[in-house]
Design a protein around this nucleic acid. Sequence first.
DNA 1: TCCGAATGATACCCACCGGTATCGAAGGAG
DNA 2: CTCCTTCGATACCGGTGGGTATCATTCGGA
Lengths: 207, 207
Amino acid sequence: MAPPLSRPGRVAKLPPRERILDAAEELFQREGIRQVGVQAIADRAETTKMAIYRHFETKDALVAEWLRIVAADYQAAFDRVETEHPDRPEEQILGLARFIADGLSAISYRGCPFINSLAELPDRLHPARQVIEDHKAHQIRRLIGMCAEAQMPDPEQAAAEITFVLEGAQVSTQNGSIDQTGDRLMRIIEGIVDRHRSHLGAYRAAD
Amino acid sequence: MAPPLSRPGRVAKLPPRERILDAAEELFQREGIRQVGVQAIADRAETTKMAIYRHFETKDALVAEWLRIVAADYQAAFDRVETEHPDRPEEQILGLARFIADGLSAISYRGCPFINSLAELPDRLHPARQVIEDHKAHQIRRLIGMCAEAQMPDPEQAAAEITFVLEGAQVSTQNGSIDQTGDRLMRIIEGIVDRHRSHLGAYRAAD
DNA sequence: TCCGAATGATACCCACCGGTATCGAAGGAG
DNA sequence: CTCCTTCGATACCGGTGGGTATCATTCGGA
């Protein structure tokens, strides 16, 4: 059952399913979901359309699987900052911000996969939409947890603020109108954390 | 030359070009650019595909024209808050935020046209991309101006912060994971303005 | 009244897309 | 060696997309 991970002849060629997912990730991110045809994915994965439909029910299922992988990457970032800064929630939040800020230049010119997919898949019944929704809910819940641990008086508001800024930064990288986005983003997040943590903000906190 | 604006028979029917643009606005916003075919626009405009191609070179040109209209709406909002609160730049910024916050429920489930179009049109040579880029540049410039007038020590940073938050809020309305988005948005913007205006922020300002 | 531009309606072209059917080659397991 | 699964390749199908050609109709202006 386990495919050969060693010397499959010339170059180490991954099994088809992996190659398909790699190709899909690359193409979906760069060209957009609807722009990329199944044939193009097959070509780039050095396989055939038929092989794709042997591993995935439909193109939509492939899209959903791709987003599931991307979501796992984000979750891994959450895990990493938590283990790197145990019991230091402010540091965890800043670590997340740096993760996004560092990724900005990498995904420049082509924004966040989730935001883009949301725009490209208006049908709320699309299988990928469920993946996105779950991921966003999970993410905001974890972020609220961090804010609460940091003794912020209104963790929901703080988490919402951070979420808005992170997503806005990812959107704004797509057009060149705003430069130094990464640095600006870090300074903004630092300001938010400082304000919510120390002087309890300008508005009434719930308890 | 001027088309009849009165009693064209039964219901007041606008000239075809207007009906086409109205239909395109509605459908592009709700279903997405690529999802909507030219035939669907013609049907909804109660005209024919042929008529569309008599008024617009290509579908892409129609998309660009649509975004030009949307951009004009946003500019009108800028104009309005400026005339409503002359020499009160903080009020102007809050007015803009309220404009976005009020629009949130209206565009709920289907985000900002510019952000969506950015995701749907990865080709940077698409005619609509130029429209978006110009609009964003113009908007950020105007926002920086307001921040400068409000005596904020780092107007570029403040404008970037506000931009991120506004765009992030529009993105986050698309999935229901964050509720009370409008109220949260207003409180966040108030906090930003307060911080940048009064106590000069936590970071060193560039003189 | 007459003319010409703008409009409406239909049929058509070609390319591409998602998805399926079929067949042969390969390749590991018993 | 043989069997059975996986993989590769090609051809095909129905539907739809953007865009064009053609012709009849309407209607305002001179």
